[in-house]
Amino acid sequence: MTGFVNIGFGNIVNATRIVAMISPDSAPVKRLVQSAKDTGMAIDATQGRRTRAVLVMDDGHILLSALLPETISSRWESHSGVGIAEN
């Protein structure tokens, strides 16, 4: 199944390529983001705002979004009709 999800400010991503949506607050995630920036694998879609979600893509790219992971997830669910597993 293919589908796109809005990650904020008119930026859209192929939802089937997202491996994980995580909060940027922990030290390991901050190191992951810095490493991706250093290697040119980070895509900043925050428009200068605070990063609230880090999306890990299946090709190793890291996307930074100003929307919360819950917001992105609910946008994808409402447009695709597919639920995302929660624990």
Score class of each variant (00 low, 15 high):
V29P: 15
V56Q: 12
I7S: 03
I12Q: 04
G40M: 01
G40C: 02
A45H: 11
G60T: 07
T51M: 08
S23G: 11
V29Q: 07
G48C: 10
Q34F: 08
G81I: 04
F9V: 05
T51P: 14
V19M: 03
V82I: 01
L55Y: 00
I18D: 01
N11P: 02
A85K: 00
S65G: 15
M21H: 06
L55N: 05
H79N: 13
G83Y: 00
S23M: 12
A27L: 11
T71I: 12
M21S: 12
N14Y: 06
V56E: 00
R75K: 06
V29E: 06
L32I: 10
T71V: 13
M21C: 13
I43S: 02
R49Y: 13
S23A: 15
T2K: 06
L64Q: 13
S65R: 14
P24M: 10
P28C: 04
K37P: 00
G40N: 04
D58L: 14
A20V: 08
E70G: 15
G81F: 08
S73F: 09
K30W: 03
P69Q: 06
L55I: 02
G8R: 11
R52P: 12
S35K: 14
A53Q: 10
A66D: 02
V5R: 02
R52W: 06
V19T: 14
T46H: 02
G8L: 07
G8E: 12
T71C: 02
T39S: 05
W76C: 00
D38L: 15
S26G: 10
S80P: 12
V13D: 00
G48E: 05
T2F: 08
H79L: 11
G8H: 13
V13L: 01
D25S: 14
M21P: 03
W76F: 04
F9W: 01
N87S: 10
S74P: 00
I43Y: 05
L32Q: 09
V19K: 03
L63A: 03
R50V: 14
M57K: 01
M41T: 05
H61E: 06
E70N: 08
S73N: 06
M1P: 09
F4A: 09
A15I: 06
H61T: 08
I62F: 08
M41Q: 03
L63T: 03
P28H: 12
L55G: 04
G60E: 02
R75D: 04
T51E: 13
G10W: 07
M41Y: 01
I84K: 05
Q34D: 15
E86F: 00
L63H: 01
V56T: 05
Q47S: 07
I12N: 08
R17E: 02
T2Q: 10
P24R: 11
T39L: 06
N11W: 05
G81D: 03
F4P: 07
L32W: 09
Q34M: 13
R52T: 09
R50C: 10
I72R: 13
S35D: 13
I62A: 03
L64E: 12
A20D: 08
